[in-house]
Write a protein that binds this DNA or RNA. Structure first.
Length: 495
RNA sequence: GGCGCUAUCGUCUAAGGGUUAGGACGGAGCCCUCUCAAGGCUCAAAUACGGGUUCGAAUCCCGUUAGCGCUACCA
């Protein structure tokens, strides 16, 4: 056990919407920091000016707040190691790039960006040497200096070793050995003066005194470069832990950053904002994501935030990639919805009813919520499930639905007419309604199902609905009678 | 192509040499029941393949295969 203060960071790049893959990385960092009583730092890596998206930061901060992943240092909260936005730290990176040039560990590359870009990426030249595609590394210090001061644009490249191996330790995967011969002279400082990820990341993690790096597995391949950079600066690298990737439901490839489609072709959410808009609870998302690559034991899955914090350790992170399972998330969401108090759930549901065009009073919602809470898996499902409580007119439904199995229109008509008579008189509370309606069924010689289905369909406009008596009570006598009258008409007119 | 990572039910995972290989989602069935849910119970379902090491391997080692990641002046 090290006594070093735990300081971890989540360091996203503001290039697009806040993806759940990133959210999972943020969550693991958060849980790790909280578990150890350490600091969770948010750092914005906005060094790619081409891909910069001005909305991304808002999406990110909103998403983190929605999930309850509050950061101790970073944008909007400050901290002693700031600034926490890389575009405000450019001088620091330039200084360190220069430092490496002075030490002969990096050099200026005057090649036009297009050339190296064109020769390096995939396919074509599998045999091309894995190293420099230019000779700038061979330039004398004087020549390099002369061209630079002459105004020639250049990038700064790291002089990577080509001999031997590097063995690095990953807290999740153990020791990993890479042959140095596959290294290239990676660009540290781009010709626009901005650092690349590699430089900025290493410099910031050092100066922000980051103790553990928990990041996605896609970074594992650049680990040897980073380790050499730490060495070049003479710094001790933080503990490294590469988290398993999250795969899309087909298991082929990372969870898409664009869109996912369900087997039926419908679009599935991949951004935190989309999950929120669909009515996924942060509790459910957090619990579900925690289980993507981490587990507590052989049976416990439902865990509160406090329990996750208490139990989270790197030792129990699984190195294998995990597939995002929408069905399981739905199950968790339903569970957490049902666990909420009526008041809490009503409060969370209100915006979703408003978004659907309803303006229920809080009292109305409090009456309806107990009847729908077991019937929704996402908050956004609620308006469609509860519409008949609020709609003045029922949406059209097939007359046949009024007629129960093994029965005919005459029986449905009789049931509805008797029900109407009873409901017009009865004390309009669920117990009294139930007693009266059951008695009426017996009198008519009908099974309860045969008696209740026509009423349910007449009042709710559908066969699947919440329990009948409570529903009638909440809908209210006037509306019930009106709707039953309407159903009777439909039956008489055959439509 | 090169380098790396990974490999237990369809999916998330437990079991860090000795278990009838456990749990969860999803699926099937039963119960409850006024419908639909929710809930309860039950069932089906896995150690990728081949070699070692060992009295004994899902577990350790090697190889194969497969999947994924990286291979940018993107992160």
């Amino acid at each position: 056990m090290t006594s070093r203060t735990v300081r971890v960071r989540y360091a996203p790049s503001p290039t697009g919407d806040f993806h759940v893959g990133g959210a999972r990385t943020a969550l693991f960092n958060y849980l790790f920091a909280r578990h150890h009583g350490g600091r969770f730092i948010l750092r914005i890596e906005d060094t790619d000016r081409k891909r910069y998206n001005s909305q991304a930061l808002d999406w990110l901060l909103e998403g983190l707040r929605f999930l309850g992943l509050d950061w101790d240092e970073g944008p909007e909260v400050g901290g002693a190691y700031g600034p926490y936005v890389q575009s405000q730290r450019i001088e620091l990176y330039r200084r360190h790039a220069s430092l490496l040039i002075e030490r002969g560990m990096a050099y200026r590359c005057f090649c036009p960006p297009e050339r190296t870009e064109a020769t390096s990426p995939d396919s074509e030249e599998p045999g091309a040497e894995p190293g420099d595609s230019c000779r700038c590394g061979a330039l004398s210090a004087e020549e390099s200096e002369r061209r630079a001061s002459g105004g020639a644009p250049y990038a700064v490249r790291f002089r990577a070793p080509r001999q031997g191996n590097v063995t690095v330790h990953d807290a999740i995967r153990g020791d990993i050995t890479f042959p140095n011969e596959v290294l290239r002279d990676a660009v540290l400082l781009k010709s626009d003066g901005f650092p690349t990820y590699h430089l900025a990341n290493v410099v910031d993690d050092h100066f922000m005194e980051i103790s553990h790096i928990l990041r996605g597995d896609e970074w594992l391949a650049s680990l040897p470069l980073h380790v050499h950079l730490y060495g070049a600066f003479g710094w001790e690298p933080p503990v490294m832990a590469h988290l398993p990737l999250i795969l899309n439901p087909s298991g082929k490839g990372k969870l898409s950053k664009r869109e996912e489609r369900a087997p039926d072709g419908s679009v599935r959410p991949v951004f935190v904002r989309q999950f929120r808009e669909l009515g996924y609870l942060p509790e459910a998302l957090v619990n579900f994501m925690a289980l993507l690559g981490w587990s507590y034991d052989d049976k416990t899955e439902i865990m509160s935030r406090a329990e996750l914090i208490e139990r989270f350790t790197l030792e129990r992170v699984n190195p294998a990639p995990a597939v995002w399972n929408y069905e399981k998330l739905d199950h968790f969401n339903g569970h957490y919805i049902r666990q909420l108090s009526i008041e809490d759930l009503a409060g969370r549901l209100m915006p979703f009813f408003e978004a659907a065009g309803y303006r229920p009073s809080r009292e109305q919602l409090l009456a309806v919520v107990p009847l729908i809470r077991e019937r929704i898996t996402r908050l956004a499902d609620a308006p469609a499930v509860a519409n008949f409580f609020f709609d003045e007119e029922l949406a059209p439904y097939p007359v046949e639905d009024l007629i129960p199995q093994k029965a005919d229109a005459a029986m449905a008509l009789a049931a509805l007419e008797r029900a109407r008579a009873v409901l017009a008189e009865v004390d309009f509370r669920k117990e009294a309604i139930e007693t009266a309606l059951r008695a009426e069924a017996a009198r008519l010689g009908l099974k309860t199902g045969q008696m209740f289905q026509p009423i349910r369909v007449a009042v709710c406009g559908r066969k699947a609905a919440p329990p009948l008596f409570e529903t009638l009570e909440v809908v209210g006598r006037d509306k019930c009678l009106r709707r039953i009258d309407r159903a009777v008409e439909k039956l008489r007119s055959g439509g």
